[in-house]
């Protein structure tokens, strides 16, 4: 079933997709969401709104999506399985569709241990694979997981995430295959710093023909400092930051490091664009949304297509 998703339209027309991210605030101030949204207006084709990322309580993804939608942007609702059971998940899927949200990203979610409420109980009634299946069933068959008929199907373009750098590496493409089989139509990857390893993963993905069934958007995150590069390497699970990159950041004077981080990001995008099977870029500028326009322009991805 075709949706009104801008991402799906660009995918169908053979274009190159650019998405970015907007992390909701740790409070009820809608202005913060609007301000971040303004930075991204016209610069990207879709904006992910994170769902309590790193298990830290924030404004709900659905609410922030509605605010962005009201501004005329194309939000991508992130939804994690950590905090909601199948009743709440399906309810929010209907709510999102009713608000005109055309895209969803189905995730398992960071473990609560990393957040501000490690004392909490997680849910994991279903996993991200099963969430993908759930959205597809609701949309294409018009049925809830329980089997009852839905009056007013949620017409949503379905996405998920994949980390090419996590272990066991040999099943990472097979895992994506399961997501595609479940109904996943676009993938945003974990931040890519190790391009060589990413290209090996991409090769496995192409060998399975998955790049033809699902838009692969390569994830990038500009680094603000050598400290951030070091932190990501050491403390962020599943992150692969090559030493050469850390050395390059360290070798740059402190006041120039942010600029160098942007340069590295733009260079990566240029290499990723050339990689067979890559159909787009997902820019995760963490609390640095104001830099996305600069990155998109420097990478030669501006203007964005009208669809």
């Amino acid at each position: 079933m075709k949706t009104n998703s801008k991402i799906e339209k660009i995918w169908d027309s053979g274009g190159f997709i650019v998405t970015s991210e907007c992390g909701p605030p740790r409070g009820a101030d809608a202005e913060i969401v609007r301000k971040k949204g303004e930075y991204l207006r016209g610069v990207v084709d879709g904006v992910n709104v994170t769902d309590n990322q790193t298990s830290v309580v924030r404004m709900s993804s659905l609410s922030a999506c509605a605010i962005l939608k009201g501004m005329g942007l194309e939000p991508i609702l992130q939804m994690v399985c950590r905090d909601r059971n199948r009743i709440a998940l399906q309810s929010d899927i209907l709510g999102a569709a009713a608000l005109g949200i055309n895209n969803m990203l189905c995730l398992s979610g960071d473990h609560q241990k990393f957040g501000d409420h490690p004392q909490g109980k997680n849910v994991y009634d279903i996993d991200s694979m099963q969430l993908i299946q759930t959205v597809r069933q609701m949309r294409d068959e018009g049925k809830f997981l329980g089997g009852d008929e839905i009056k007013g199907k949620p017409v949503i373009f379905i996405g998920a995430a994949e980390n090419p750098f996590a272990d066991p590496f040999e099943i990472r493409a097979a895992r994506l295959g399961k997501k595609v089989k479940s109904g996943c139509q676009f993938i945003q990857t974990q931040c890519i710093y190790n391009l060589e390893k990413f290209s090996r993963w991409m090769q496995m993905v192409c060998d399975r023909g998955l790049h033809e069934k699902c838009a692969i958007l390569a994830g990038v995150t500009p680094m603000k400092s050598a400290g951030m590069a070091n932190y990501m390497k050491k403390n962020v699970p599943g992150m692969d930051v090559p030493d050469a990159l850390i050395e390059r950041m360290k070798g740059t004077p402190k006041e120039k490091q942010a600029e160098e981080g942007i340069n590295i990001c733009v260079e990566s995008i240029q290499q990723l664009r050339e990689m067979p099977g890559v159909r787009g870029i997902h820019i995760m500028a963490i609390e640095w949304e104001e830099k996305v326009a600069e990155i998109v322009k420097a990478a030669g991805l501006f203007p964005r297509p009208e669809v």
């Binding site: 241990k113 694979m129 980390n163 996590a166 974990q190 599943g238």
Partner: peptide
Amino acid sequence: CAKSLMNGPCGGSSGGKCEV
């Protein structure tokens, strides 16, 4: 699995160990 995932490891599996 710390998340009771039924269809494969999450993105936090590293060197055979759990991210938790």
